[in-house]
Simulated assay, not measured.
Amino acid sequence: MQNRPSMVNRRRFVAGTGAALVGGTAASSTTGATTGPHRTRSDEDNRASRTDRATVIAHRGYADTYPENTVAAFELATQGGTDDAANRRRADWIELDVLPTEDGELAVFHDTELSGLTDTTGVIYETPAETVFSAEVLESGQTVPTLSEALDAIPTETGVNIDIKEGSSDVQFGRVDDPAAEREQWEWLEKVVDVATDYENELLFTTFWEGALATVTEIAPEIPVGYLLSESIEKGLAVTDEYDTAAINPPMDMLYGTPFFDDDAYESIDLVAEAHDRDLPVNVWTVNTWYEADQLLEAGVDGLILDHAEILRWSALERY
């Protein structure tokens, strides 16, 4: 395991306290640290409050900062410092999306349909690779990359979260009664595994589709996987347990006890506690404001999936 914040390792604790690093500062027993407006802290304390608070995951390569899921986005998202207070915060991990073209090539793109984000139309898995990879993303001059081109742009010390999208209209979103019945529709994932494992980056494969999860664990049981929770906490935890996933990746409105929890949509279950009882990290998507980041850190989450990194600076800077 390389020395980097991980989406798949157990959450970090403050030494001697058993409390997770939260908010803009870390709980500390250091002599001289006080809680008043004129508190004093050692340089070591200050560094601890700014770094290693949570794994920083660039959603599609910081999708609100750079043209999403492009080579340029991945190159730029992996530049900068590891201190949350830095002018430019480098991603610890890159999250990217993958699905197949009509002729079986691997495209890094989020949507099923090319229109909207590119100057081209067509469902990706019904469109030839030549057309897909010549599509310009958001008038940026960047085109849709192959999975190999995307991974070539990401330094080996940066983890890669490969988010698997559907490669067919014949697969079912979420849980399915018989994942094995969809196996043929997910054959293209064998190529994803072959390409991704040629690189030295730490990997996590995630998906909303149980059929994809079942296929990856069959093809390569050694690759860490995660289920993207959506409709139900109980169902998400059931999938987590069944497939022995390496992480829990929920939307932030699923986090009970935070201002964002949607009690009309979800069960009143403390998902962070459930995850940590299973010795699993919680990586939350998609975080877009400093306030959201602060509240989620206070709730004990382990990873923040971000569209732009600058939102971390406010709580990381000393404000007293």
Rank of each mutant, 00 (worst) to 15 (best):
A20D: 07
I233F: 01
A33G: 09
A150Y: 02
A58L: 07
A27I: 10
P221S: 05
V301Q: 02
V171N: 10
T121S: 15
F173R: 12
T82R: 13
T156E: 15
A20F: 10
L117E: 15
T217C: 05
S148V: 12
A129L: 09
S49T: 12
E113C: 11
D194V: 03
I124A: 05
S148P: 12
W314H: 15
Y199R: 05
V287N: 07
D43M: 11
W290P: 15
T31S: 14
E113T: 15
A214K: 01
S28Y: 07
G81A: 14
V123N: 12
I164W: 05
L151H: 01
G141N: 10
F74N: 04
A20M: 06
I233M: 01
V8N: 13
L213Y: 04
A150P: 06
R4Q: 13
E102W: 05
F133W: 03
T112L: 14
I164A: 07
S29Y: 15
E182V: 10
A214F: 07
P145E: 11
G211W: 01
A316C: 08
N283F: 03
N87K: 12
R50N: 11
V14Q: 14
L138F: 09
G24Q: 01
V160A: 01
A275P: 08
D302T: 01
R60T: 04
D52I: 04
R278S: 02
D170I: 04
S134R: 11
D52H: 13
V272R: 01
D277Y: 03
I154S: 10
A153G: 02
R39E: 13
G159K: 00
G80W: 02
A220D: 14
L96Q: 10
D83F: 03
F74S: 06
T245V: 12
L76N: 15
L213W: 05
A214S: 13
Y125H: 13
T55K: 00
H38P: 04
L96Y: 06
T207F: 04
L229C: 01
R50A: 14
E187H: 14
A316K: 02
T65W: 10
V71W: 04
A58S: 14
F133Q: 03
I305P: 07
E310F: 13
R47M: 14
G303C: 02
G116P: 09
I219V: 12
L213Q: 02
A316L: 05
P281A: 02
I162P: 04
P179H: 00
I164H: 07
D103Y: 05
S232Y: 04
G211R: 00
A181E: 11
F133C: 03
A196G: 09
N283W: 02
R41V: 11
D45K: 02
T143P: 02
V284A: 05
G211H: 06
D279Y: 07
R175K: 15
T118Q: 07
E234C: 08
E187N: 14
E298H: 12
P128W: 11
T25E: 14
N283D: 11
T78D: 08
V56Y: 01
E187Q: 15
L213F: 03
R10P: 10
P145K: 03
G226K: 00
A54F: 00
S148Y: 07
Y227E: 01
K191H: 14
A247E: 09
Q2I: 12
F205H: 02
L280F: 08
G36S: 12
R41F: 12
T258A: 07
T70E: 07
G303L: 00
F260A: 08
G23T: 06
I124D: 08
E139F: 10
